[in-house]
Amino acid sequence: MQTNWDDLRIFLAVARDNSLSGAGKRLRLDPATVGRRIQKLEAALQTVLFTKSPQGYALSETGQALLVRAEQAETAMRAAVAVLQEQSDRLSGQIRIGAPDGAANYLLPQVCAAILKENPDLEIQIVALPRVFNLSRREADMAIAVSAPTAGRLIVQKITDYKLHLAVSRDYIRDNGAIRSVADLARHNVVGYIADMIFDRELDYLEEIGLTKVPLASNSVSVQLNLIRQGGGVGVVHDFALSAAPEVARILTDEVSLTRVFYLIRHEDDRRNARLRRFADRLCNGLRAEVARLEALT
């Protein structure tokens, strides 16, 4: 006669609790039901598994032999369930993320690499463009933005705050002298965005500081940082990017400290898409942790 896992599960509960009532509590079954199931199992196996005593239900010699096999089956069952749960929790298929190049260059590589390590069947595409993505046209499955959209059928989720400060290379300071105040910036080269290519007002840092003349400009955050690294001038830099440029240091941190927000944007039609929702959760958690880690290094 073959026994099933449910038979063994009840047998193990009685063997471990030495009582029908204890096993019933463990299994959330009525003790009488547990007793009937044990009697049925003994009848099917044509043997006695327990002997009743004042101390409760004690295993017979045959019961002791079955206990060893049942525990082996339990271990195998738990291992199988763990594998199935792990496989069912893994993500697969292609997911495309649109992102401004600051996040794309200094945050997404390490975060997405970690997600891919956990989900080897996944294909992640990072589209780094300094502009707003059109999710309605399916340019991407989701996008990171620096301001929350107010129109369109979109799911908007705040990811995290992040900090920016003025920064300059040590070579530039050596060649051009210390910058001790915001007023001093007027006599120094400034690196920043191309004014008519700023795609979001949240990125107009220099206007907020009161700087309008930008001798070295780019629509790319990574290009701006490289200009600063090469001694081109002083500019606003993401704190999370500074670890990639050890020759660059923050300045005037008490006078100029900016805070911005990253948002994750998805199309409303994807609200019920469990796959994208799970990926979005992993992405947001990873980005929060990575921003916190990198900012702590500054």
Rank of each mutant, 00 (worst) to 15 (best):
A65M: 12
D17A: 10
G231I: 04
L27Y: 03
A13N: 02
S136Q: 12
G233K: 05
R293A: 12
N189P: 06
A289N: 09
S218D: 11
T298A: 13
A15Y: 06
K25Q: 13
I115V: 05
Y162A: 01
F240P: 01
V223T: 15
I126Y: 07
E295T: 03
T3S: 12
E118D: 14
A140Q: 04
S136L: 11
S243N: 09
L225R: 15
A148Y: 12
D204R: 09
V182T: 13
H188G: 11
S92D: 11
D254F: 00
G98S: 07
I179K: 00
A43N: 12
D17V: 06
A249G: 00
G152D: 10
A128S: 12
N226S: 13
A82Q: 15
A32E: 14
V156C: 10
M197Q: 15
I179A: 09
R275K: 07
K213M: 12
C284V: 15
F199Q: 05
E139N: 03
V191Q: 09
T160Y: 07
D204I: 01
K25A: 13
N4C: 10
L252H: 04
E202Y: 02
I126M: 03
R69F: 12
F133D: 02
N189I: 04
G98V: 06
A32G: 15
V34Q: 01
G232Q: 01
I198M: 07
A280H: 06
G93Y: 07
L67Q: 13
V214E: 09
L283H: 09
Q230N: 11
M1D: 14
Q224W: 04
L252K: 01
S21G: 01
T160M: 06
V168D: 09
Y193V: 01
S169V: 00
Q46G: 06
E42Q: 05
E123R: 14
Y172N: 03
I173L: 14
R78D: 14
D101A: 08
S222G: 13
V14G: 05
R282N: 10
Y205S: 09
I251R: 00
E71C: 11
A73Q: 14
T33V: 14
R272C: 00
